[in-house]
Design a binder for these strands. Structure first.
Lengths: 371, 371
DNA sequence: TTGAAAGCGCTAACAT
DNA sequence: ATGTTAGCGCTTTCAA
């Protein structure tokens, strides 16, 4: 998605003569009297300038750096702007200045609750800053990311926000010399392209397993779906924790998207394959919800006979009966802080800390609170 | 969010000299020999043209309408493009042509599952078309929509997609004369600004109540949260259906966002206030999930002693125990079809039907299957 | 503090 | 089928 390819569409339905005539009104326009057919019909800087009796550049300055224009002129310009209902043309501005107000954002998914929250943080972070967000959706496809990142980068964005740390070497090289601020989110990393905000998926998964161990569960299984790089690192974490405890690895993994239905299916499969299973760490909350439903369907008592831990701490974990223990991750914060750091950098300020570990927190609830 | 205001940021961190030197290489550039400091450093149309030994406009045409250029020239141009790694500048294109490849999209939420699905449909619809998506998030605030819509419209989008039919008169007037295709989604309507894709929330809510009645439930309550215009119309629907059946109105409504936790709270409140309640229609699925959890917490048997119907048919409704009856709405389809219709119109073709009612379907599951 | 000129990279409108 | 010219609306540069 979001290509800037040429070709395709050509016609221009509905684009014909609408506000055509208005061009003439102020007759303020350029020195030249004749009317080009190419003009958009909207008032331009020159129109405002003529009406205010100043040069175009003064209007431009009044708009961008009001302090460089005398209060009197500023006021006259403000009136002209209001009168003409002038709105600056962002395209012209970008072309002339070589600088855009677009922050490119590349996410692996839009429907996944995790990224919906990130997205909310991003939009809240950008609110009122004057920047625009341009979203690319890779659908968890590394090739799509490799295609999208250079494409976005080539459009002179003011900054870019990327998900994760697994960009291809080529993409990475391109971005490192791109000349605009970049932040990677969702993962901890020693070697960011520029800035990074995240947490250790390895540690978080390890903490989940240790929590189950601490509650006395021993025959622990793990459910996972859609093994993206973050999931892979969680996998390393739960494997390490299980191995450290001398416990065998009991996993049910699917490449398909995570969902409650998938959670039920995977839980069912693992329960059948591993009789005596007494707990599940679910690498996503929707899997955990599905696992709980599967327990209910089988009449298994949670938490007495079976423990469940989820991951991400989605809102419904607290509402479930029993409520479900989960690893809280700061998704909204990553999106929001990511944008805030980028905006800081665009403004020429250095963030105090370009490498932020937001950590995680294991929220214990009823699903692992036994006896 | 997504303003195009002036002011704010000024500095240009990190933007300093990166690929500076490269400007000289092809020396192909314009007729003028001197090198402006303003140049971006990226190869331009003129560079490609010089390398291919043709005029700039020919390159432009080769890129946009290859059939208007002879195969031989086209081939030479393709080579030059590849050699220079040329990427067209979208801003310059937009400025010169007065036409952009941006489709503006205004949604009330990004985190709500409903709109996450719509968004996915939108991105899938736009994939491969060459159009870009610009999202505005109103957070269910009509004023924000009234602010955002004109702002987007002023940026010469190729088209716009709006949510619902409750734009202010001013916004509506502006958009009606905007000159680009517009589609409204999520609701049925007789008087679209341009095109519309939706379904009747009134009918859908009515169908939900009638389903409960058909299953023999009589002391029916309704839960609602965040009463946006769609919810209001559902409310009219459930009220009509209850009144038609001669049943009293038992509602628990909250202006706060819908969530499973909210569902539990509202269900709890209504159950306490209305002893003997035997069913709930929940105007959102997360409320329905919360209601189910509340029943579980209270030891109420669903569906035997209590019926539950949700709205939207989110994935987890099918996984719940018992699975939850819900009104299926075609969210993804509305997003996708909306974009497809816009793209058709941009290409100058008229869609067969500019007013599409996608309907809904009541999916009966265990939560209302008693007896 | 203000302005004139030039140009950002591309395409529309006429040529040829 | 290809080229020439003149912008699109804004900002940079340099000057006053």
């Amino acid at each position: 998605m979001v290509e800037t390819v040429q070709g395709a569409r050509d016609g221009d339905a509905g684009r014909t003569g609408t506000t055509q005539g208005r061009t003439g009104d102020g007759r303020a326009g350029a020195q030249v009297g004749r009317m080009s057919q190419r003009r958009s019909g909207r008032p331009t800087l020159a129109d405002v300038a003529a009406l205010a009796g100043v040069g175009a550049i003064t209007v431009s300055r009044a708009l961008r750096r009001p302090d460089q224009v005398s209060p009197a002129t500023r006021e006259r310009i403000a009136q002209a702007v209001a009168e003409l209902n002038y709105i600056p043309d962002p395209q012209a501005r970008i072309l002339a200045s070589g600088r855009s107000d677009v922050i490119g954002v590349i996410l692996p998914s839009l429907t996944n609750n995790v990224y919906a929250d990130v997205l909310q943080g991003i939009y809240d972070g950008v609110a009122g800053t004057g920047f625009q967000i341009q979203i690319g959706n890779t659908r968890y496809d590394p090739e799509e990311e490799a295609r999208l990142a250079p494409l976005f980068a080539s459009q002179r964005p003011a900054a870019m926000l990327l998900t994760g740390i697994d960009q291809t070497p080529a993409t990475r090289a391109l971005l490192e010399s791109a000349g605009f601020p970049i932040v990677q989110i969702m993962e901890k990393g020693d070697d960011p392209i520029d800035m990074i905000i995240g947490f250790s998926h390895f540690d978080a998964a390890q903490a989940a397993i240790r929590h189950l161990l601490g509650r006395g569960y021993r025959r622990i299984g793990v459910l996972g779906a859609r093994m993206d790089p973050r999931l892979m690192r969680r996998q390393e974490g739960w494997r390490a924790a299980l191995s450290e405890a001398g416990l065998p690895l009991r996993e049910a993994i699917s490449p398909e998207p995570s969902s409650a239905t998938m959670g039920r299916a995977l839980a069912s499969r693992l329960m059948d394959a591993e009789p005596g299973l007494d707990a599940l760490f679910c690498a996503n909350d929707d899997l955990a919800l599905g696992a709980l439903f599967e327990c209910q369907a089988r009449g298994i008592a949670v938490p007495r006979d079976f423990g469940i831990v989820g991951f991400n701490d989605l809102e419904m974990m607290a509402a479930a009966v029993p409520s479900i223990t989960s690893v809280q991750t700061r998704r909204y914060r990553m999106g929001r802080l990511g944008i805030e750091m980028l905006v800081e950098r665009i403004a020429g300020r250095r963030p105090a800390e370009p490498n932020v570990d937001l950590g995680f927190e294991l929220i214990e609830r009823e699903s692992t609170r036994r006896g």
